[in-house]
Design a protein around this nucleic acid. Structure first.
Lengths: 338, 338
DNA sequence: CTGAAAGCGCTTACAG
DNA sequence: CTGAAAGCGCTTACAG
């Protein structure tokens, strides 16, 4: 959008289309008494000239833009803490944050534009290729938080150093003396999960520790994955003495699976999570975990979205914030003879 | 707002004020060249006649209203799950939900009106008397979720049957054979906490169980209250065999305090929470707790807000949804000789 | 400090 | 199906 350009008026469009202002007005208001080919031509020009009806012009107020945050499924801790970072950063810049579940209605992106949204932030990629096409057509910028797929040059994204996090979690367990360490992860297709797992593998290989096939299990980023996965791991002939979980929810499932069969954490089994949501601090025992700076990631996404909404360029298509190991009470040296 | 009334125009105001349309226009646009007494009189009429500038008239589109949800402090599970209910209900009605932290800027309520908000939902009352006055002046309806204070006739609120919840939690412990039951609650001034505590007291009295003074402790609705409170309870000469916690976070603190001193839950100590946030399901052991229908409460608040935004009357100033005891693994009969 | 007048962007009833 | 013309709500440069 050219900053100094005068707003496009119906008269501009009328002149460009070679019709009267009255006809353009009818097209804008969706009246029926316009010839189809005239309508199409005028619509095309309206779109090209970025015409905005007076009632929507307030949405141009760049000082107080509205950003839409979309999430999928339920608003769990991970999403909530990221959202808090977004809301705080928005308050600082005078932006408003609308929260919604991802939609797949036919013209969702254009509807967002009409509703005055200036950018979309998706918490964990909720968008398919069709979504992206619709979005590109609408001209609405998108920032993905913790993308599930490989960065696409059409979208901007904010993530964390997942590989380094997997590395440090595993090194921590190795340094405590564990050698039989399993990885219970999220979806095999999610890049953040892949990076965490490869960090784990890299640390194991560097130490010369073997990774039996049965020790690495993908799943969902959910409690149930930890509960069921840990039960199977603990049934192995050579069960692990430590489990690195792909996120805190999985870790909580592992802790409960251990408790349910009379094993104590960390005395009998060490568990490391990932994310450091409030769940990790309030667990019993409090979880050793890899902290993702969720609030900061949310704030970074909001600032990127604002920059793009303003027509400025973002520094980079993808930025990653540093993860950090937080040692609490769910890890200890392996049991004797373990 | 009279439904069939034509929109107030500058001409209406000009006539009422006995000045020209030009002068009214200057007042609306905040120009300096208007005599102070003229300005005041015109402003007063603009407000009385509910004048809305053209750029903001789109906010009148009652089909797609925007509701502001304000919370205080951090966006914890309780708030997140309520918010999810609000967002889902909004999606059904075509409303948009803006999320923010409670503000105390001088004209926050009027600013919300200018930004097009049609109602405010506060998750746990965040408003002081000064807030309420500013709000009343702005004409923006307010719905409070889980009010901390006694219902005020100026605000609408949605809560849960806290007394009945406290009663059923305590009866559950009594029925397991516990007699030494403590209550670790939230702020003494919060009505929801008072109701839960009186439910507890009523159940204890009905059973003829004594409640030593040291067994009832107010605090904050936070993990730390459970951690510290349980430590003190367990140091008593006659420690309780069960703790009813004012919410799930407090309960998690109790579970951890027990674990830290080598006690098992539920074998050595039973714990009941309140809320049934996702925390309760993922705890180890999974928590017995009193479920508040948080999503439904959010949805009810949204629908009330929408009705008020439409100028309709709500059924009642305060509605309460039913709580329900959810028995999981953190409660069991008291230990032998307990 | 006020307002008559010109003008802008838009809509609509109506003639063709 | 099109557009000239009247009209609406608002703003602003300017005369008093």
């Amino acid at each position: 959008m050219r900053p100094n350009a005068r707003r496009t008026t119906l008269a501009d469009i009328a002149q460009a289309a070679g019709v009267s202002v009255a006809t353009v007005s009818k097209v804008v208001n969706g009246r029926g008494d316009v010839a189809p080919h005239t309508r199409v031509r005028v619509q095309e020009l309206l779109h090209r000239h970025d015409y905005l009806a007076p009632v929507f012009r307030h949405t141009e107020a760049v000082e107080n833009p509205t950003i839409e945050v979309q999430f999928k499924g339920s608003l769990k801790s991970y999403v909530a803490e990221t959202l808090e970072g977004i809301v705080d950063a928005a308050a600082e810049s005078g932006a408003s944050v609308v929260v919604s579940k991802a939609s797949s209605a036919p013209h969702w992106a254009r509807d967002l534009v009409s509703a005055g949204r200036r950018a979309v932030i998706a918490v964990t990629s909720v968008h398919t290729a069709a979504h992206l096409k619709e979005l590109a057509r609408s001209g609405l910028p998108l920032v993905v938080l913790d993308p599930l797929h490989l960065p696409d040059s059409r979208v901007h994204s904010v993530g964390a150093t997942n590989f380094a996090g997997g590395l440090s979690a595993t090194r921590h367990l190795l340094s405590l003396g564990h050698r039989r360490i399993a990885y219970l992860g999220g979806p095999a297709t999610a890049v953040c999960n892949q990076a965490r797992m490869h960090g784990y593998r890299a640390a194991m290989e560097a130490e010369g520790a073997t990774v039996p096939e049965a020790y690495v299990r993908p799943g969902e980023f959910m409690y149930e994955t930890g509960l069921a996965g840990a039960a199977e791991l603990l049934d192995l002939d050579e069960p692990p003495t430590a489990v690195f979980a792909g996120n805190d929810e999985i870790a909580l499932g592992v802790v409960e699976a251990a408790r349910a069969r009379g094993l104590r954490v960390p005395e009998d089994l060490s568990v490391v999570g990932f994310d450091d949501t409030s769940l990790a601090q309030m667990a019993s025992p409090p979880l050793t975990t890899v902290r993702q700076p969720l609030r900061e990631m949310g704030a970074a996404a909001l600032r990127t979205a604002l920059r793009l909404a303003n027509g400025e360029k973002a520094e980079s298509h993808h930025i990653e914030l540093a993860t950090e190991l937080v040692v609490r009470a769910s890890t200890a040296p392996p049991p004797e003879g373990g």
